[in-house]
């Protein structure tokens, strides 16, 4: 069980353009917060910042906490924040099992224990016996599931979802969405998802925020397209500082 993911006056700008205005929010463990906005609005950039891999051209400020731990001063590999991209990004030179082993915490020592842990994770995901396979031989849906498994085996304390359902077709999309949210809930970590698809937000069944880009600087508001399923923003513990 991890603590809440908390953003404290996080701003991001590129040259003179403000992508993310001062943003304060907190996401409790087990909750999903959806951040919506058109492409190019800086959603993914925010996730890069949280993960610690913001490209040098951007300027960012503010602090990020997980529970009582400030992670914004840490190197990406020390943050324990997992990111799921829309591409599965399975390492093509490693087998499915090796991909998972790369993600699996090093604290699990023996080779046998690690193999068992990986096999168990694969079996739970309906992929029993897939460990020695070349990732290129898997279907899109299978690859997506392996990518999530790899992420969860690293025991992250927060999950960031960067439009992870974008490249899947409608049927697979619904199935993988259920898989992701069920796994995230089971892991009991805060989840921040960015998307531009309203059905993703609906399926997440959490609070929704929307980035509204404007020439004088973007603003972030409670989601206008909020669905019945989405809880009110305040109850999710998210507060928004608008403008600059």
């Amino acid at each position: 069980m991890s603590g809440a993911l908390r953003l404290e006056r996080v701003t991001i700008s590129l040259a003179t353009r403000v992508l993310i205005p001062p943003l304060e929010l907190s996401i409790m463990p087990g909750e999903v917060l959806t951040l919506m906005g058109p492409s190019g609005s800086g959603k993914s950039t925010l996730l890069n910042f949280l993960g610690g891999t913001l490209p040098g051209a951007f300027r960012a400020s503010g602090r990020v906490w997980i529970g009582e731990r400030e992670v914004s001063a840490l190197a990406p590999q020390q943050r324990r924040i997992g990111i799921l991209f829309q591409d599965d990004l399975l390492f093509p030179h490693l087998s499915v099992g090796e991909n998972l082993a790369f993600g699996l915490e090093a604290s699990l020592r023996t080779r046998r224990a690690r193999a068992q842990r990986i096999e168990a994770a694969l079996a739970e995901a309906g992929l029993a016996g897939f460990a020695p396979r070349d990732p290129a031989t898997l279907s899109g849906g299978q690859r997506a599931r392996v990518a999530l498994l790899r992420l969860l085996l690293a025991a992250p304390e927060a999950l960031l979802l960067d439009e992870p359902f974008n490249k899947l077709d409608a049927a697979l999309r619904a199935e993988f969405r259920r898989f992701v949210f069920a796994r995230a809930a089971a892991a009991g970590v805060p989840v921040l998802m960015v998307t531009h698809d309203a059905t993703d937000a609906q399926a997440a069944a959490g609070a929704v925020l929307e980035i509204v880009p404007a020439p004088e600087g973007a603003s972030i508001a409670p989601g206008a397209r909020r669905t019945q399923a989405a809880a009110p923003v305040q109850s999710a513990g998210a507060t928004v500082a608008e403008g600059l």
């Binding site: 890069n48 990111i83 992250p156």
Partner: peptide
């Protein structure tokens, strides 16, 4: 090379050295 491979590996807790040796160099 897609930089997200390295980013993903970092977020999985691998040190930059390990990312270089195990991901980038083999790829």
């Amino acid at each position: 090379l897609d930089q997200r491979y390295a980013r993903t590996a970092l977020c999985l807790g691998a040190s930059p050295r390990r990312v270089f040796l195990r991901i980038k160099l083999p790829l």
